[in-house]
Amino acid sequence: MNLTSRETWTLIHGMVLGALFLLGFAGGLEALYSLRPNLLSPVGVHDRLHRARIGVVAMAVAAWGTVLTGTWVVYPWYRERTPGSPRSILLADPELQDWHHFGMEWKEHIAWMSPILATVVAFIVIYYGTGLARHDRVRRTTIALFVLAFTFAAVAGLFGALITKAAPLT
């Protein structure tokens, strides 16, 4: 049941921050979707906005935490020039090479679009406040960016899980 330092960091990168990311997305999306004055009382608008702020900020923080730990802590172990590193294991097997050439190459880049867009959404929600309830166009635009930020992270997370299955970091 002991975890190595590398396994612990991988856990923080993928599971701990990933769970926070998912919670932030689910809470933020629900709050943004229902932030409509025709469905809510003024107190309800205030409550939804509060939840939206918590959700979008949590997702942005989790997204930054995920890419920073992934790029600067876990990735150097992945690409070590040693025979036992995941990169070396994948490249040594013709049947697994594409997990690096396509999967990892895309994941390591596209993941960074998520925190950028999540931060944009957090700014809009904090700056515009209850204006989001008054201006449906801005609210829908914010939701679109929020879902896009989630989609990029989901692509990266999916490849991360599959690559870890093919060549675990130990």
Binding site: P42, V43, Y127, T130, R134, V138
Partner: peptide
Amino acid sequence: VLGEEYHAAQKPEGPVSAAI
């Protein structure tokens, strides 16, 4: 809430567009 809504209504959309 109404006070905040009124204040928000005065905010221009430009900074939102700039961030996007």
